[in-house]
Design a binder for these strands. Structure first.
Length: 870
RNA sequence: GGGCGUUUAGCUCAGUUGGUAGAGCGCUUCCCUUACAAGGAAGAUGUCGGGAGUUCGAGCCUCUCAACGCCCACCA
């Protein structure tokens, strides 16, 4: 890197200019490459693979930043750190995108045929793979691209086949006809968790089904009258006296005249609707169950397109109609036949397809399922026994509740894009073989369905490490992974499946910690989405504010509880301003250094109290930062570093260095700060470090050691004395502001009290509070026309002959006394309470007493001075 | 119907074993003091959602009420 520009640093931090070449520098020097032969302890993270056709959004930016912080931190702490990147083939999502594209040309996937469509989608995926990972690179992501994987690549496909076949052979995968959530638009089954329920203003239609061979009728209630053609019974509760006599009788379906029995089943709720329920096993999961219990057949009346089937059971006038048109038409006909008893408004939850928001049609269909209950056992156990820890822990409960009520997972999808199910059917006999390879391609045809995307994502932590080759170097070195970082929205979809599959196939948890962060929302707390137009584009933010600024802002907003983050553009000013501050402080230091790297060694025998104070503060910060990262309090880390760098280093130490500077300390603290900040703000810190004249044993800051607490840099006593300096300075500045004394006017002060200490610290006070002369005076010095402040046990007297308003100064001091008095009252209140003295910890009682003495002293000092003033 | 979360300064939010409250932005006053106006100095603002309880002491623990949000659940 070019060091010649040190003295030409711009006065404002131009993020784009500064950040642009750094990533390439790291890549060129293989800084992100993880070595599976290393002796170092491993630390590994697998990325939650973004959808291959997706675009980087703020959620990725947050998730990626956190993973990068953890990776960079552990790398600097001496671990062999691997952050493994990759993409998800995202079955439905990607297929939808490509089909939409085709639709623009007026084509459907069927026009192309499966083979051609898959080929096109592969091209599409390959084009986009580099785009999304490239966008992650613009975040500064220190992942190892040489290990980038794709859920549909050869290795993953091998893993998927093996897992499928194994589970099948163990009896944990089965095929059968069940009610599934069918998306008529995607033309596929989807799983229960891909179905999202939305409240809609529906209607409840009450329809009279006449009894056969006698007068009377039974009135049922339904929200979907079009399904009545598929009714095979009417069910009532066996304890419902209203219908007692009807059980076992037969009623007649209006419009079509088909006869169906009236049965009794506990499932029916007497109090809902009319208490009589029509049973349509082919189009309702509960009815399906009732049907099974009573050995009823199923009549499918709606097809996979969401249209009414042309069959004997469906009224000819609605055959071929869309399900909603059929609903209207059916209602119309029922009205005409005078069997529509009542229509009431009925808001209810309707299932929607997660991907396209189309209303789900529950449909009887032949699908593949994973039997989850046996698999869930270990997954529950390993979380309960702490082998897998959620941070924050409350998500554990959420996970366990879901796992303990797990239902079988429908894994087949009627799509073309994905892992084709490794089941083969004999062309003549139809005999089915489940195997990793087609036993005889001439005579066997592969199942046309593909697997749910989450099936392969569920194997992600080990399929990317070489599994099923358990002897591969990566698998041995980096599996199981250490931390998984993700949002709570995919705990069920992804985290739960990875744990389940990981335990089943590798016998160990795929990671030990699941770090769950909040979701990014807009400034009104709404989910960001392109359709709402409320998204904030990370790429634009990076352009405008800089990558490190964005990372810093996002990090600072990550609270320990993992609250959702409300974002607006302006919030990134926080990070930008901080980046600018770091830049300028560094600029100052670099401009003022006269010594060369060799001479910038810390000499602990040659330190002023200011040096000791900053080193002591830094040391404390180092400890806090390490502790907080280890405990996933990453937002806290940002706050601590911001506070230290700005309010300690810049506001005081750098200012003090203008009077008297210790270049070694100035440089040391800056370098350490850069290291501490590096995981959060990698570009800026790397750039500055490259320009610093410090001895470098590594090519990059990112490869150096992370700061650790040093016993020899603790200087608590000197640090406290320095705090007194700051207090004195603040008091004098305060006084200046209160009396409108211009900064240009130098003050003379008199000091009464601890002479030794104040002689030591006077030079600092003189400079930073713009004091000309300091005179030490004895007790009871004349203080007419003086303003004053008190610091510790010492009075600072400022003679302001003719300048001050005595009355105003008295008021000012009285205000201080009021504050002190309030505190004193509270302290005394506690101390006079016997119970407090007896039951509170000794230290607390002791420090309370001590504080009383201090406060009393201060009040007395001020009182004395007031009495002299008046 | 269950479960979870939130309610603290005008706004957005911190606040880890309970010891009378903090940040950023905004606001007021002053300052372009040669690192930084994306800056510096000083300042104002809070019965910590309501109520009750435990405790010497509660923003923090318990109970309860209220508002908002999220997740799960088969009410046709």
């Amino acid at each position: 890197m070019d060091n010649s520009q040190t003295l030409e640093m711009a006065t404002t931090y131009e993020a784009r200019e500064i950040e642009k070449d750094i990533y390439k520098f790291w890549e060129d020097n293989q800084c992100f490459k993880a070595d599976n032969k290393s002796k170092k302890e491993p630390y590994s993270i697998v990325i939650p693979p973004p959808n291959v056709t997706g675009v980087l959004h703020m959620g990725h930016a947050l998730d990626g930043t956190l993973q990068d912080i953890l990776t960079r931190y552990h790398r600097m702490c001496g671990y062999e750190a691997l952050w493994l990147p990759g993409c998800d083939h995202a079955g439905i999502a990607t297929q939808n995108v490509v089909e939409k594209h085709l639709a623009k040309e007026g084509k459907t996937r069927h026009d192309l045929g499966r083979e051609e469509f898959v080929k096109i989608t592969w091209e599409w995926a390959n084009d986009h793979k580099s785009r999304i990972l490239g966008q992650f690179k613009s975040l500064g992501a220190s992942f190892d691209l040489s290990r980038a994987r794709f859920t549909l690549d050869e290795g993953c496909s091998r893993a998927v086949k093996k897992v499928f076949v194994d589970l099948y052979n163990k009896g944990l995968i089965y095929k059968g006809a069940y009610i599934v959530n069918w998306c008529p638009r995607c033309q596929s089954a989807i799983s229960d968790i891909e179905t999202q329920y939305e409240n809609e203003d529906g209607k409840l239609w009450e329809i009279s089904y006449p009894l056969k061979d006698e007068m009377g009728a039974i009135v049922i209630a339904t929200t979907r009258p079009e399904t009545m053609y598929g009714d095979v019974a009417v069910a009532v509760n066996p304890n419902d006296y209203k219908y007692k006599d009807l059980i076992g009788k037969t009623c007649v379906l209006p419009l079509t005249g088909r006869e169906i029995p009236i049965i009794a089943d506990e499932y029916v709720d007497k109090s809902f609707g009319t208490g009589a329920l029509k049973i349509t096993p082919a189009h309702d999961p509960n009815d399906f169950e009732v049907g099974r219990r009573h050995n009823l057949k199923s009549i499918k009346v709606i097809d996979e397109m969401g249209k009414m089937i042309s069959c004997a059971e469906v009224h000819p006038d609605v055959q071929g109609l869309d399900r909603y048109e059929a609903r209207e038409k059916t209602v119309e006909m029922l009205k005409a036949h005078q069997v529509l008893v009542r229509i009431t408004e009925h808001p209810h939850a309707v299932g929607k397809c997660q991907r396209c928001n189309t209303t789900i049609e529950p449909l009887l269909s032949e699908q593949w399922f994973v039997k989850m209950e046996p698999l869930a056992k270990a997954a529950i156990e390993k979380v309960k026994d702490g082998s897998i820890k959620f941070v924050p822990s409350r998500w554990e409960k959420n996970y366990l509740m879901w796992m303990e009520n797990i239902r079988d997972w429908c894994i087949s999808r009627q799509l073309w894009w994905g892992h084709q199910i490794p089941a083969y059917y004999h062309n003549q006999t139809g005999e089915m073989v489940v195997a990793e390879e087609n036993p005889d391609p001439k005579n066997y045809t592969q199942d046309t369905d593909v697997l749910d995307t989450w099936f392969s994502s569920g194997l992600w932590p080990f399929e990317t490490m070489g599994w099923p080759d358990v002897n591969s170097d990566d698998f041995k070195k980096f599996y199981p992974t250490t931390t998984l970082v993700t949002g709570f929205d995919i705990i069920f979809f992804w985290v739960a499946r990875m744990i389940t599959m990981g335990l089943e196939f590798t016998k160990v948890p795929p990671f030990s910690t699941v770090y769950i962060h909040g979701l990014i929302r807009d400034e009104n707390g709404q989910k960001m989405s392109k359709s709402k137009g409320n998204t904030i584009d990370p790429v634009e933010i990076i352009e405008k504010y800089g990558c490190d600024a964005m990372r810093f802002t996002l990090t600072s907003l990550c609270t320990y509880g993992g609250q959702d983050i409300k974002l607006s553009n302006e919030r990134f000013e926080y990070g930008r301003n901080f980046a600018n501050k770091i830049w300028n402080a560094s600029r100052f230091v670099l401009m003022n250094l006269t010594k060369s790297a060799k001479d910038l060694k810390l000499d602990l025998n040659n330190l002023s109290i200011a040096d000791k104070w900053i080193l002591n503060s830094l040391n404390k910060v180092v400890k806090e930062v390490n502790d907080n990262i280890k405990n996933y309090r990453i937002g806290e880390v940002a706050t601590i570093l911001y506070d230290f760098f700005w309010n300690y280093y810049c506001d005081w130490y750098v200012e003090l260095s203008k009077i008297e500077k210790n270049e070694a300390v100035l440089t040391y603290v800056l370098e350490q700060s850069l290291k501490l900040l590096h995981p959060i703000m990698p570009h800026l810190t790397e750039k500055i470090w490259q320009m610093m004249p410090v001895e470098k044993t590594e090519i990059a800051l990112m490869k150096t050691d992370f700061p650790q607490f040093r016993e020899d840099l603790s200087f608590e006593n000197d640090a406290q004395n320095m705090e007194i300096v700051f207090e004195a300075i603040k008091s004098l500045r305060n006084l200046r502001a209160d009396f409108n004394i211009p900064v240009g006017v130098k003050m003379d002060i008199k000091i009464e009290g601890n002479k030794e200490l104040f002689e030591k610290i006077t030079p600092y006070i003189k400079r930073l509070a713009r004091v000309e002369n300091v005179e030490f005076v004895s007790e009871n010095a004349n203080s007419k026309h003086c303003a004053f402040c008190t610091v510790a046990d010492t009075k600072i007297i400022v003679p302001l002959e003719g300048l001050i308003d005595i009355q105003k100064e008295i008021e000012r001091q009285n205000k201080k006394i009021q504050k002190l008095q309030a505190e004193l009252n509270s302290l005394n209140g506690r101390l006079s309470n016997e119970k407090f003295v007896n039951s509170a910890p000794k230290e607390v009682v002791e420090s309370t007493k001590q504080r009383v003495v201090e406060v009393e002293g201060e009040i007395k000092t001020i009182d004395d001075l007031i009495s002299k003033l008046s």
